[in-house]
Amino acid sequence: MSSSGPEGPWARHSRYALPAGAGILFLAAWEWAVAAWNVPKFVLPAPSLIAAALINDGPSLMQSLWFTTKVTLGAFLSAVATGISLGVLFTLNRTLERTLWPYAVMLQVTPVVAIAPLVIIWVGFEKLWLALLILAWLVAFFPILSNTTIGLASADHGLKNLFELYGASRWKRFRYLQFPSALPYILGGVRVSGGLALIGAVVAEFVAGSGTATGLAWRIVESGNMLNIPRMFAALLMLSVFGIVLFYLTMWLQWALLHRWHESQVRREN
């Protein structure tokens, strides 16, 4: 290959051009193959059919996406809030940590699919969105809790001495030392948790299975039952686009808060 440097114009364009080109080529091959082998559309619809479904069912699919978005973001934000608060409480009070930690682990390791029916019965079908939110929260909150606890305990020993030397109050030690030290860990947890919230919301809706749930997961099940495979693909596509947006949002948050100082966000030229 001609040498244009590691960050030459070719390298810069190729970052977007290569995956985009590969995607277009793949879609073209797909379209062609479906027509060439006469694949029935309830097995594998052509990309053009999926696009059509996306347009025709657009408004109703958007409504479902909005429902899934609300559940996912609600679960994600409550996971962030409760995960961080509980992590802070655990750090302030070791007895509390020892008492509650096993139950937090228990909630984490029990598969959400297994708890879902119970939660749905407790909350009631008329408030199914709340049941879904609780289930997605259950999945999403643990990484934040465990990362917060580890992060708060990992402040630099020398800095701890310095804070002691200047007689820092507990609050100031938390505000100026422990919390900033924990932030990279917490944000790592937040990134994992964002993806898990979406998975939790989708899985919970699969289990809930019917009726008042109108999110994208239910549309996928419904489309499958009606053999409307183009719409199933359209819903899938929307889910993955939403997942990507969520992923980049959390990545951006991490960058915004850490790029001035943390090694993980610093580009080095060696």
Partner: peptide, 12 residues
Amino acid sequence: FVFQEPTLMPWA
């Protein structure tokens, strides 16, 4: 007090 390491807060 000056420690052996600079002991600075990297985020500040």
